[in-house]
């Protein structure tokens, strides 16, 4: 059974859902969904904290601080990266390894540019408004919430790159298909969290 797991799958072969073809895969699939459930509570707690501390103790309030243009671009980039990872998984289900790697590569590029813009954004707040992690409770809560998300993006990037490099030569098999699949789940989750951050932090912050 286990050696079969390492056999490279080619397009046109079965199974159609390689990520759930083994018990290990099924366990991973379910376990990861539960993990995301826990992550949801984690982010919910961070959102709660942020809302309680919004504007508290800060000289520059959210309304003045945030500009929507850059954040909007970041949102588009991250949403697009979610779409490209969907394409990647679509090709995985068709056992088309090369196309999957290609689309994952695009996902990584988009994710990296999101991260770059986020770092630029933070720099901007620090230099223009002296809005730092230690300047006020608002600052602490803002950088913690958005920073936790950024940390997740970074971890997701490292994870996907590791998978791509590790499996570049040997292709798709029943052993690594679940790994790809849960990594893409993780990426979607990060995306959903960002939608909430965009709404709760930036849009609601701007409206006041």
């Amino acid at each position: 059974m286990s050696d079969e797991q390492l056999q490279t799958l080619k397009p046109g072969q079965s199974p159609h859902e390689p990520e759930k073809a083994t018990l290990e895969g099924k366990n991973k699939f379910l376990g990861f969904w539960f993990f995301l459930g826990g992550e949801t509570v984690l982010f919910a707690s961070l959102f709660g904290t942020y809302l309680a501390l919004k504007d508290k103790g800060a000289e520059t309030k959210a309304q003045e601080l945030f500009g929507l243009e850059l954040v909007f671009i970041m949102t588009i980039i991250l949403l697009t990266s979610s779409l490209t990872s969907v394409y990647a998984i679509y090709h995985m289900k068709n056992l088309d390894f090369k196309k999957m790697q290609l689309w994952l590569g695009i996902t990584v590029l988009l994710g990296a540019s999101f991260l770059g813009l986020e770092i630029y954004e933070f720099q901007h707040y620090v230099h223009e408004y002296h809005h730092t992690f230690t300047s006020s409770a608002f600052g602490s809560a803002f950088y913690t919430l958005v920073g936790f998300h950024g940390g997740h993006v970074l971890f997701g990037l490292l994870w996907i790159v590791t998978l791509m490099v590790r499996n570049a030569k040997r292709g798709l098999n029943l052993y690594n298909a679940p790994k790809y699949y849960v990594a893409s789940l993780y990426w979607h989750f990060i995306d959903v969290v960002w939608v909430f951050i965009f709404t709760v932090v930036y849009l609601m912050g701007k409206v006041g």
Binding site: L53, K56, G57
Partner: peptide, 29 residues
């Protein structure tokens, strides 16, 4: 447990990295 994780993170940031989550003088609660 994730709620505790977050609580502990906030406390760590307050104690070790100068954040102000629970410090009334910084607007914390």
């Amino acid at each position: 447990f994730p709620a505790l994780t977050v609580g502990l993170f906030l406390m760590m940031f307050d104690r070790l990295f100068g954040a102000g989550f629970f410090d009334p003088t910084m607007g914390g609660n």
